[in-house]
Amino acid sequence: EDEVKKIVKRLIENGVDDEQIKEIVKRQGVDERIVDKVLKELK
Rank of each mutant, 00 (worst) to 15 (best):
E1N: 08
E1I: 15
E1A: 08
D2A: 12
E3W: 15
E3K: 08
E3V: 11
E3D: 11
E3H: 10
E3L: 11
E3N: 08
E3Q: 11
V4C: 03
V4G: 01
K6M: 14
K6Y: 08
K6S: 12
K6H: 08
K6R: 14
K6N: 12
I7E: 06
I7H: 05
I7R: 06
I7P: 00
I7W: 15
V8C: 04
V8W: 01
V8E: 00
V8T: 02
V8K: 00
V8Y: 01
V8A: 03
V8R: 00
K9R: 14
K9N: 07
K9M: 14
K9W: 11
R10G: 13
R10N: 13
R10H: 14
R10T: 13
L11S: 01
I12S: 04
I12K: 12
I12Y: 12
I12W: 14
E13N: 09
E13C: 04
E13I: 09
E13K: 11
N14C: 13
N14F: 13
N14D: 14
G15F: 04
G15D: 04
G15I: 02
V16I: 14
V16Y: 15
V16L: 15
V16P: 01
V16M: 15
V16H: 14
D17T: 14
D17W: 06
D18N: 09
D18P: 14
D18V: 15
D18F: 14
E19Q: 12
E19K: 11
E19C: 04
Q20L: 13
Q20K: 13
Q20G: 10
I21W: 01
I21D: 00
I21K: 00
I21F: 01
I21C: 02
I21Y: 00
I21M: 02
K22Y: 11
K22R: 14
K22D: 01
E23T: 10
E23M: 12
E23W: 09
I24K: 03
I24S: 03
I24D: 02
V25A: 08
V25D: 00
V25H: 02
V25N: 02
V25Y: 05
K26M: 15
K26L: 14
K26S: 11
R27E: 07
R27H: 08
R27L: 12
Q28W: 15
Q28E: 07
G29P: 02
G29W: 03
G29C: 03
G29V: 03
G29D: 03
V30Q: 04
V30L: 13
D31Y: 04
D31L: 08
D31I: 05
D31A: 10
D31W: 05
E32I: 12
E32R: 06
E32L: 11
E32V: 12
R33F: 12
R33L: 11
I34K: 03
I34H: 04
I34G: 01
I34D: 03
I34S: 03
V35R: 01
V35Y: 04
V35P: 00
V35L: 13
V35K: 00
V35S: 02
D36F: 06
D36K: 07
D36Q: 09
D36E: 14
D36S: 09
K37H: 06
K37M: 09
K37D: 04
V38G: 00
V38H: 02
V38K: 01
V38I: 15
L39R: 03
L39T: 02
L39H: 02
L39M: 08
K40Q: 13
K40S: 11
K40C: 05
K40A: 14
E41P: 00
E41S: 07
E41V: 05
L42H: 03
L42G: 02
L42S: 04
K43A: 10
K43D: 06
